[in-house]
């Protein structure tokens, strides 16, 4: 057990360094941005009617005149104490914005993650087991079509078909418009999350299915599958007994690595569906010059992605007998 704790500790240290680097990069990019937060958020016309003192106070608020290094160090020192600052746009603590946004995004991403993982694995195994025949061609063709389709375009398409033409699903947001918070039911939330989650799942399936197929094809051409055939095992038995077992390890890596793609995809998809999640907040914060919020989101999503990879690494140790037995013997 000790070696695994040591392993995790090393990984966590690396994660701290990574988060530091990510936040610094995001900050530098933000400082280099040509967007003037005053013009974006107050507007040219409004700025024209303001007195110099008002403008100076606004510049102070948006931190335009502070030296970048000082701003970053200031953010960093309070972030280390657990205070991510106050969102300049929403005027509430960043942690609260993150919490709310995370709540709605988490549903979306979790559903898409599980769905695309299960569906992708199933389709990939099916295609690999039937390689060269029509189910394989069909699945591969569909996956290639889907991976070459931009997520936002697919989102628009689904929105048009299911919400505008058929009217089955709402056209956006996470709750019905004008409803009281207390009156919103779980069914309402699910109905609003369905199309965004579907979009994310569909785009996620393609990569997982294609990778799984490749891996299974490799397994089916291996010597141990040849030997299994020589011992009279049937093709379905080979796929179930040896195929799934040997595809499981790369599938774990793939599944956890897909978290980063999911977060990237959610930014676009949430934008199209006006779904008030983390992705949409990232766009708003980036375009509006809301530095504390953007840094908060960046750090949080980087931590999520890193956490996913860490999970995959730790699971590997539990699943792969070479790592498990090898480490236990040391």
């Amino acid at each position: 057990m000790g070696h695994r704790i040591q392993f995790a500790a090393k990984k966590l240290l690396r994660m701290a360094l990574l988060l530091l680097g990510v936040s610094l990069t995001a900050f530098l990019l933000m400082s280099a941005s040509p967007l003037d937060p005053l013009q974006t958020n107050v507007g040219q016309a409004a700025l024209g009617t303001m007195s110099q003192e008002q403008i100076a106070r606004l510049e102070d608020y948006w931190g335009v005149n502070d030296p970048p290094l000082e701003r970053y160090l200031g953010w960093l020192s309070s972030a280390l104490r657990g205070d991510l600052g106050t969102s300049l746009l929403y005027r509430v603590p960043v942690v609260r914005v993150l919490g709310e946004r995370m709540g709605s995004s988490l549903w979306l991403m979790a559903a898409a993650w599980v769905l695309s993982g299960l569906l992708g694995l199933t389709l990939g195994v099916l295609a690999g087991a039937c390689r060269g025949r029509w189910p394989d061609r069909l699945i591969r063709g569909w996956c290639i079509l889907i991976s070459s389709t931009p997520a936002f375009w697919l989102a628009l398409l689904l929105l048009m078909v299911f919400s505008v033409w058929m009217g089955i699903f709402p056209i956006g947001l996470s709750v019905p418009i004008g409803a009281e918070a207390a009156a919103v039911t779980l069914a309402d939330r699910l109905r609003h999350a369905f199309l965004p989650a579907l979009t994310l799942s569909i785009t996620g399936v393609a990569g997982i299915a294609l990778h799984t197929r490749e891996k299974l094809c490799g397994v089916l051409e291996s010597d141990y599958v040849l030997f299994a055939r020589a011992r009279g095992e049937s093709a379905p038995s080979i796929v179930l007994r040896h195929g799934l077992r040997n595809v499981a390890l790369p599938a774990i890596t793939l599944q956890f690595a897909s978290i980063s793609e999911l977060i990237g995809g959610s930014v676009l998809v949430e934008q199209v569906f006006s779904y008030p999640g983390l992705g949409q907040a990232a766009v708003t914060a980036g375009l509006g010059g809301d530095l504390p919020l953007l840094l908060g989101i960046t750090v949080l999503t980087a931590a999520l992605v890193f956490g996913g990879n860490l999970c995959a690494d730790l699971l590997y140790g539990a699943v792969d007998p070479k790592i498990r037995r090898g480490a236990a013997r040391r």
Binding site: Y224, H242, R245, L249
Partner: peptide, 23 residues
């Protein structure tokens, strides 16, 4: 051959690579 292999006709393979590494 498909009906007999593994029952009456058996193969002793070359190396341990012919065993499923995860089983």
């Amino acid at each position: 051959a498909a009906a007999l292999r593994g029952r009456e006709i058996v193969l002793v393979p070359q190396s341990v690579g012919y065993l499923d590494p995860l089983m």
